[in-house]
Amino acid sequence: MPAPSLGDYLALSAVLFAIGAAGVFVRRNLITILLSIEIMLNAVNLTFVAFGRALGSADGQIIVFFVMTVAAAEAAVGLAIVITLFRHRESLNPDSFTALKW
């Protein structure tokens, strides 16, 4: 097999992003949905690092740190919301939180 090229990394990243997106749509469990978002963020990170490598600059790697910070913040707040919701409804299914629906 030939050495991997930029295109291979981007293709892998696209597949991972698609898996993450599918997870958000298909799964009915808040925690798995948050995990799927993490998959998508990581797919994007891979793209950044691969492009940074191809262009020979460090910017790609730096953006990854910011994405990781945002992911950490998102996970902290997201999980706090999940805990609060679970206390009210005893469920992790997003379909059971209908109080603001009309």
């Binding site: 090229s5 930029l6 295109g7 291979d8 020979g56 460090a58």
Partner: peptide, 21 residues
Amino acid sequence: VELIWALEKGAESGRFAGGAV
């Protein structure tokens, strides 16, 4: 379909140049 198309296109431009940070 898109991936196959993209990989076909990108195959010739693919290798990484030197000079990684």
